[in-house]
């Protein structure tokens, strides 16, 4: 199949780029396989619903007001958690970079916590903040904090020592150093941090909602699952993925094009 596709490449159809054609064919093939499995009866009925059912569920989801209530809750949790994690992570990352001894002392703990799955901190967060929205915000913040910290600290190492010496020779105060030297020099790595942080904050919030909540898109997804409303669950997962990838693309647009 691969060979035919490459040969296709040389066909004089310029109005349709070969890459686009491969992707369109792939999507078509995936849809056909899905539909085939759905209609074959190999799996329990309803486990893989036909695409038409998922499409119908998707339309229903888009026109139901309830969806947007849950979306608003999740969006607020993600925004607040991401904001807190981002600001705290940048501050801590700058501190680790500006004070190398402190940075080296903290590195093992930050690395260890950054690697560990954040969702296992949910019980602690729920004990501290209850099972409501605050616990989801806290988990989002916790998720965003570590990649942002690591990335900012790495960005600090990349700042030219000349810039820092310039700042010192002007006898800038600590706050001035941060505002006039570090933050402008970190611009690129902060944008990368935002991408990383937003992605994990979304995951953290949604998983927390799945585990224990009474509202939000994560709750809605697991509620569909528990009630065995499978087409609705697939449609909602699709909705969540579109939003998550869309948010990532939007933040990616911020980065200066080279």
């Amino acid at each position: 199949m691969a060979t035919t596709l490459t040969n296709f490449n040389r066909a004089p159809l310029h109005w349709f780029a070969p890459v686009t054609r491969v992707r369109a064919l792939t999507l078509l093939a995936a849809a056909l396989v899905w539909e085939g499995v759905a209609r074959s009866g190999w799996l329990y009925e309803g486990v893989v619903p036909p695409l038409t059912a998922v499409a119908r569920a998707f339309v229903v989801l888009l026109v139901t007001g309830d969806t947007y209530h849950h979306l608003a809750v999740t969006a607020w949790e993600v925004a607040a958690g991401f904001g807190i994690g981002l600001v705290a992570g940048i501050a801590f990352g700058i501190l680790m970079g500006a004070r190398p001894f402190f940075g080296r002392a903290m590195a093992p703990y930050v690395d260890g916590l950054a690697t560990a799955p954040k969702i296992i901190f949910l019980p602690i967060v729920m004990l501290l903040f209850g099972v409501g929205i605050t616990s989801k915000i806290a988990l989002g913040a916790l998720s965003a904090f570590f990649p942002v910290t690591l990335n900012t600290a790495a960005g600090m190492h990349g700042i030219s020592p000349v810039l820092i010496r310039v700042g010192r020779s002007f006898r800038l105060s600590r706050a001035q150093m941060v505002r006039m030297i570090y933050l402008p020099a970190l611009r690129g790595s902060i944008i990368v941090s935002m991408r990383l942080g937003l992605g994990v904050a979304i995951i953290g919030v949604l998983l927390a909602e799945i585990k224990l909540a009474d509202r939000g898109l994560g709750f809605l997804a697991i509620d569909h699952y528990n009630q065995f409303r499978i087409p609705d669950m697939y449609a909602l997962l699709l909705f969540i993925f579109i939003l998550a990838i869309g948010a990532n693309v939007l933040i990616g647009r911020l980065s200066p094009r080279r």
């Binding site: 949604l206 997804a221 997962l237 990532n248």
Partner: peptide, 15 residues
């Protein structure tokens, strides 16, 4: 890579 892949787990729970 950027998508919350882990959220697909209910799908595999179903299957």
């Amino acid at each position: 890579f950027a998508a919350p892949l882990i959220l697909l787990y209910p799908l595999f729970l179903v299957i």
